[in-house]
Design a protein around this nucleic acid. Structure first.
Lengths: 153, 153
DNA sequence: ATCAAATATTTCAATATTAAAATATTTCTA
DNA sequence: TAGAAATATTTTAATATTGAAATATTTGAT
């Protein structure tokens, strides 16, 4: 389903890659999200925060926001929901009382420790559509793309 | 920022590609979304529907949902908002009265016709991080990934 | 030391998103 | 043809998301 746009060759090429990149990431995410939802009742965002805390230890909310490329208000909301479910705890920083750290509860640690290997296998399965060499090449290209900073136009 | 997970080589490779794929698509989307929001006050979903109607003509809501990989309820909401802004009109199908077609209004057609070339240039600019050959290769790899259907596990 | 600027989080209003239930309509089958 | 099953859309409740305004706290400049 290529673009229907009548533009320059370079625009058409870019539009077609863009469409395929979005399709790939959305369809992989949709499958992983369904798995996450059906097995643990977690959203992708909730999982992302649990995973970051699991692998990196306690983080404050600004740090989490940067890591996830999400706004501060969003992190507040998602952590509210994780706290409601008893998976995460907030702790006000003593040295700088503006800051709030989030950390896993025992329940949260157990859930993510248990789930993460399944997540890894699910991703491995998804990526099996590509050979190891293709995976490395895809990683390299995505990295180049993601890094691009747009100062102005 | 590679994965911290201690898994098999194949799992680690897959996790790393996955992270980069998500980063790339999210950061490109974030930049395009900011542009869309600041110039037209449109969301990515609204733009997606306007663009589909522009290039494909009137579509019913099921067709739009399939195209966008979104749920029926979601399409109802986004079209509600497009209708509020006078960019899209609903029309009940006469032959099958369950079906509702959406079509651009004159205002909607003008907006998207005017905006789309800017969108194409913005994407061209994003993809300039890669050579034309790299773009084609990225497209090929993404297509292979996106196609993968998961029946069961 | 004081006060303005910067920083971290929360709140708010608007939009997006899903799954599931409800509604309307059509199609299929006994 | 009547009723069941299928299909299309809407509604609802819960969560996500943003940008902007509000609040709390710290830092920096005079």
């Amino acid at each position: 389903m290529p673009t229907h746009y009548q533009g320059s060759e370079s625009e058409v090429r870019a539009l077609n890659v863009y469409i395929k990149l979005m399709r790939a990431s959305e369809s992989v995410t949709a499958r992983l999200s369904a798995f996450l939802q059906s097995t643990e009742g977690l959203t992708v965002s909730q999982f992302g925060i649990l995973e970051a805390l699991y692998h990196l230890g306690p983080l404050n909310q600004s740090q989490i926001g940067e890591k996830m490329l999400k706004s501060g208000g969003n992190i507040t909301t998602v952590i509210d929901n994780l706290e409601k479910r008893g998976l995460v705890q907030r702790r006000r920083c003593e040295e700088d009382r503006r800051v709030v750290y989030a950390d896993l509860t025992e329940k949260g640690r157990e859930m993510i420790g248990n789930y993460f290997p399944k997540h890894a296998r699910a991703i491995e399965y998804e990526m099996n559509a590509l050979t190891p060499e293709e995976q490395d090449e895809l990683g390299r290209l995505c990295k180049k793309l993601g890094l691009q900073e747009r100062s102005s136009r």
